[in-house]
């Protein structure tokens, strides 16, 4: 159970800290020019960060130990990748992925 005496210090520190992270470059970029190398790296941010979020969520889903339980998530995610690649449609990707996942779970 959460001890509510820690609530405000944690929420305010995390809230302010997260805001400063979000604000950082957006605020200072006017006065600063990024080196060319950094500019060329920016393009790889979406593919890298999102994939680094996806892979542990699909294969490890929340456990901090490496294990392959829950293979139906991996299969559903693979099919979702195919749907996203063929259709480029967000709605289709999420719906098909969820339906395949539920279908596989029902079968087990």
């Amino acid at each position: 159970m959460v001890d509510m005496t820690t609530y405000w210090p944690v929420v305010l520190a995390l809230g302010i800290g997260t805001f400063l992270i979000r604000f950082s470059f957006i605020l200072i970029m006017d006065k600063l020019t990024l080196p060319d190398a950094v500019h060329r790296m920016l393009r790889f941010i979406p593919a890298s960060v999102l994939t680094a979020l996806i892979v542990p969520a699909v294969f490890l889903h929340g456990s901090s130990v490496i294990s392959f339980e829950g293979w139906e998530r991996a299969v559903a995610a693979f099919i979702a990748v195919l749907v996203a690649w063929k259709t480029k449609n967000v709605l289709a990707t999420i719906s098909v992925g969820m339906l395949v996942f539920w279908g596989l779970q029902a079968m087990i």
């Binding site: 979406p46 593919a47 890298s48 979020l53 996806i54 999420i94």
Partner: peptide, 28 residues
């Protein structure tokens, strides 16, 4: 599980060439 699916829906179309594919594979 809906959250990684939304990320898949966004990231797959963002992988347009070999360097960005390589970036995604290494990151994963």
């Amino acid at each position: 599980f809906a959250i990684p699916l939304t990320f898949i829906a966004v990231v797959v179309p963002a992988v347009k060439d070999r360097p960005s594919l390589f970036a995604a594979v290494v990151a994963g």
